[in-house]
Design a protein around this nucleic acid. Structure first.
Length: 523
RNA sequence: GGUCCGUUCGUCUAGGGGUUAGGACAGUAGAUUUUCAUUCUACCAACAGGGGUUCGAUUCCCCUACGGACUACCA
């Protein structure tokens, strides 16, 4: 088998625009991209839209946007251009015919005139006869209406009469087909298990199999990295390369393990996301239900608050690992560390908990200034605003305690709105008359301090703590007795970031006002 | 049904003929934080089963079981 290792590395991601890009597709694109970058090769994007019936408007744009959001950069192909344009197979339609003809001329393909009804009948007949694998193949084609069984004159007449036909590959009856897979090693399949696949459909469009091989060859693809669902048809593709005379430049294959549902078994599907409450698409998708025609909304990782770095890091580890203890990888680090040899053979279940963990990690690692816009946006949506500086401060103290950027608003609400209710369990226990008195004095003290500075002073957290210590000592109490009550009176909640940091952000005047409001409500 | 692929803690996985079978997530416990979260520490937890080969197999081979993909004029 030929291993064309010395030619330029060119990989491709070749999705069908039949809907939003699935998260498994994103991983396939990612592995392609990592390999291309690592080896200094090119990453192509080709749109495989040979099925006119399944075309979904907007899907192609979605794919482009999703890849861009993930940081997967396309070097050549749809949306970018390049020397092999067009990169949309529907626009390459005229190109495929000659290869089908070449195959027919060489005796490796033939015309088949069977109607769908005849094909159904054939399958029914074979099933009834308990044939192991009912298919159009070396044996059954002898009973069908094709250019192998019909006299030449009749074939010509049918063709001349524009009778609908397909072109099928003439798969040899007894032959062992071997090919090497980068992940699985040698795979051997007997040709009797491969059927005479349709290469050209009656509408004149090639099927996936023909178009894929022709384009991969023309576009000089060096590695075909795709999902495991393609493994069964790989022997067919090998045959195609051989019969087309391209075996010496046949790409290397790598069939990636599937992504499974988190519960139970089976391939991760669109429905699992809705069922289990997590996205399976990178971006939100507005589609229509295939059966009811109702508009549907599928959530996306982006809209759910996942950071692209986190998603990518997580996805990279679903089926691959560096063999070291390192778990956190930037895209550049992934590029450097990736290797197809370390991709596992077995499928992986999608782990919701782990993505969340990655997201929390990346959220905390992100500079406050980059997180602040999320808070600012939520504020604007609620008709509120604050200075960018304050937003930076708030996300700074909050990011340790949230999983997603959208949580900032929920968690930080009390920085913008005085509490309208208080944690009663804590208040009942901690808001004693003595504590109330001390806190009232504390509020006045810091407010006065601030007023002396023109109402503008925002003392640092340690000063605020110092004031409280002083007041509390005068009341012959311990500071610990007052802390919980102070927090709840000011924020309404029993838990939150460092109390004095919180007070520092709020400012003395506001703190005092809230303290008084809380006291009033309880007197 | 047939063909092909797969099978290590609940999950993602490392490892590999002789190991206390390692890490991460989750879970549990503790420490820190006079809060919660973070962080840190500890604990819990696995080689699908049966045959070989071998001094020795979780590792290599075979079988079984289980799981998955494919089996369209869809990709």
């Amino acid at each position: 088998m030929t291993m064309t290792t010395d030619r330029p590395v060119r990989v491709r991601f070749a999705p069908s625009p039949t809907g939003p890009l699935h998260i498994g597709g994103v991983r396939t694109a990612l592995y392609n991209y990592l390999l291309a970058r690592q080896l200094g090769g090119k990453m192509l994007l080709r749109i495989e839209d040979t099925d006119q019936n399944r075309f979904v408007p907007g899907a192609e744009e979605y794919i482009l946007e999703a890849l861009a959001w993930c940081g997967i950069v396309i070097d050549e192909g749809q949306g970018v251009g390049g020397p092999h344009a067009p990169y949309r197979q529907s626009e390459r339609k005229p190109l495929y015919r000659q290869y089908a003809n070449q195959l027919i001329a060489a005796g490796h393909a033939y015309y088949a005139f069977d109607t769908p009804e005849e094909l159904d009948a054939m399958r029914l007949r074979l099933q009834a006869a308990k044939v192991a694998s009912p298919q159009y193949n070396a044996i059954t084609r002898a009973q069908m209406r094709n250019s192998l069984t019909l006299p030449d004159t009749e074939v010509q007449a049918l063709l001349a009469a524009d009778t609908p036909y397909v072109v099928r590959l003439k798969v040899p009856r007894k032959e062992e087909i071997r090919f090497h897979d980068l992940i699985r090693g040698w795979v051997v399949v007997h040709s009797s298990a491969v059927d005479d696949k349709v290469l050209m459909k009656s509408d004149g469009m090639p099927t996936y199999h023909l178009a894929n091989i022709v384009d991969d060859h023309l576009m000089e693809i060096s590695h075909v990295i795709r999902g495991e669902e393609w493994l069964p048809s790989a022997p067919l593709h090998v045959l195609l390369y051989r019969y087309l005379g391209w075996e010496s430049t046949m790409p290397q294959f790598a069939h990636l393990p599937l992504l499974l549902k988190p519960d139970g078994t089976g391939k991760l599907s669109k429905r699992d996301g809705d069922r289990l409450g997590f996205p399976v698409f990178p971006l939100e998708w507005r589609g229509t239900d295939a059966e009811t025609g109702e508009p549907t909304l599928s959530r996306g990782f982006r809209e759910d608050g996942y950071l692209p770095d986190a998603l990518i890091n997580f996805l990279a580890f679903l089926g691959w690992n560096p063999g070291t203890a390192q778990e956190i990888f930037s895209m550049d680090e992934l590029i450097a560390a990736f290797s197809m040899e370390r991709v596992s053979k077995s499928p992986a279940k999608f782990d919701q908990g782990k993505v969340k963990w990655y997201n929390e990690h990346y959220l905390r690692a992100r500079p406050d200034a980059e997180l602040a816009p999320y808070l600012l946006a939520a504020l604007a949506a609620h008709g509120l605003s604050c200075t960018p500086e304050k937003a930076v401060q708030i996300v700074g103290v909050m990011k340790e305690r949230v999983s997603f950027p959208q949580d900032f608003w929920q968690e930080a609400k009390y920085f913008f709105q005085a509490p309208d209710s208080y944690d009663e369990a804590v208040m009942a226990k901690k808001w004693t008359p003595a504590v109330a008195a001390a806190l009232a004095e504390y509020g006045d003290l810091i407010a006065d301090y601030s007023r002396d500075a023109g109402g503008e002073a925002f003392p640092p957290a340690e000063d605020l703590k110092g004031f409280l210590t002083t007041v509390v000592e005068q009341h012959e109490m311990k500071i610990g007795q007052t802390l919980q009550a102070l927090r709840v009176a000011v924020t309404g909640a029993a838990a939150g970031p460092d109390l004095f940091e919180t007070l520092a952000i709020l400012g003395p005047v506001e703190v005092n006002a809230r303290l008084k409001a809380a006291a009033q409500g309880r007197s």
